[in-house]
Amino acid sequence: MRVLYFAWLRERLDRSEQQVEPPEQVKTVADLINWMAENDEAFALAVEKRSLIRAAINAQIVSHDASLADAHTIALFPPMTGG
């Protein structure tokens, strides 16, 4: 599974994407964030304020309780500031 990062989250992690192979019990976006945080201290710090992390699955915006079934690309990013 491919994970993309944008804006200050990308800068704090010092990478724009990575490949992850989460275990079977990781079923939702929230599970994925928690699992990655457990395994990566820098990631844990960057996503400390979960309310500031938005997510998309396969280029569709989703909530943190969305299922990862059929997900090939997950994007994590801060609140959007377009316009």
Partner: peptide, 14 residues
């Protein structure tokens, strides 16, 4: 359109 895209379109200003 403007009110929605300010909060819902994935752009980030620096």
């Amino acid at each position: 359109l403007m009110d929605y895209l300010k909060t819902d379109a994935p752009f980030w200003k620096k």
